[in-house]
Each structure stands twice: as structure tokens, then as C-alpha cells.
Amino acid sequence: MEVSFGEDRILFLRYDFPGATVHPTGTLTAGQIRDADWELWRPEIRTTLGETLFVPHEQQAELKQFCLRNDIAGKQRLDIWSDLLEPFLDTEFSPEHVQATDNRLRQAGLSCEEAAGIRRRLTPLMHAYNFDSMLWEWVDLNLYDLLSAATGPLVAPGIQAALGDLAEFYGWAMEIADRRR
């Protein structure tokens, strides 16, 4: 991922996720940005179309300055994908913790059945990403991890291919991510 900031636009010189509006390269104007969270480890931009785009960690300050210069709101929000992918972490949670996660998912508009279906669909992918690859993440798996699992080198191509068209998968992931505004 490679990003360059202009006065009123962001140039994505290399963006690795097929389906993204800026893949493999593209430009995003300030007017196309709904809000951003530059405080995250991997800063995020949310577009007016509901897409989440990522910026390298090293460019947090640049993103913040860009947003302040262009009157773009800084907004922190919980990552619905962190809650959905929680069962694939290398850790165990108390029943109370699981219930709190389920409650957040319901508040974001996902029924228990829908959340379970999403998790079933992603089980082979996320097991391969976090366990088979020996990543062993135990703190947080999120939207960036999901997209990395679907497109990156840690998961066997056959498992990735089972997801279907990557652009469609990307759109599906973004639609879910945008539920928690």
C-alpha cells in the first residue's frame, strides 16, 4: 500500500485490494470522503459511497492534516468486522464477553443468524489466515485482516478462490462494514 497526500486529494499509488475504487491505483478527492479515523493503528477513510480505505500507519499525521485542511470529520467507530471475526482469534472469551459482542452486532443490525452465517462462510479463510499461517493473532482481527486474508500470501489460493469473485467479496465486506456508522 502506497499513498500520497495532495492539497485536496489523496493519491493511492498502490492499493492491494481488488474491488476497491482505488485498486490498483486511484485518486480520492476531499469531497468523496465522509469521515476518517487517523487514530487507528491502520488509519481509515470512509467514503461517501460507504467504502473503507486504509492508509499506512506511518502516515497517520499526514491523514490528520489532510482532514483538518479539508474540513473532513474525524470519527471513531467500532469495527463491526472486529466483532464478527472475534471467534477466529487465538484466545478464549467469557460467556459475558461473547454476549456483549453479540449485543453490539445486533445493535449494528446483524441478527444472530446473519452473524453466524457470515462466520460460517469465513471459517476456512480465517482459520487459514490466523492459525494455519501461524500468525496466531490474539488481540484483534478486523476488516483489513479480512481483506488481507482474501488476497494476500498467508492463505492458500484454493481457499481464497472459494470466496468467489474478489470484487464482489470486497463489496459485500464493505456493505457490512458500513452498517456501523
Rank of each mutant, 00 (worst) to 15 (best):
D79N: 06
W81D: 04
D83T: 10
L89E: 01
E92V: 02
F93K: 03
S94H: 07
E96Y: 05
D102Q: 13
D102T: 13
D102I: 13
L105W: 14
L105E: 14
R106F: 15
G109N: 05
G109H: 03
S111T: 13
S111Y: 15
E113L: 08
E113I: 05
A115V: 00
A116I: 04
G117D: 13
G117H: 09
I118V: 09
R120P: 01
M126S: 03
N130C: 15
N130F: 08
N130E: 12
F131M: 15
D132I: 14
D132W: 04
S133P: 05
L135T: 08
W136D: 07
W136T: 10
V139K: 10
V139N: 05
V139R: 07
D140S: 10
L141S: 12
L141K: 13
L141R: 12
N142E: 09
N142R: 11
L143T: 09
D145H: 14
D145I: 15
D145A: 11
L146R: 09
L147Q: 13
A149T: 12
A149K: 12
A150D: 15
T151I: 11
T151F: 06
G158C: 15
Q160F: 01
A161I: 03
A161D: 14
A161P: 12
A162C: 02
A162W: 01
L163C: 03
L163M: 03
G164N: 06
L166P: 08
L166D: 05
E168W: 06
G171W: 00
W172H: 02
M174T: 00
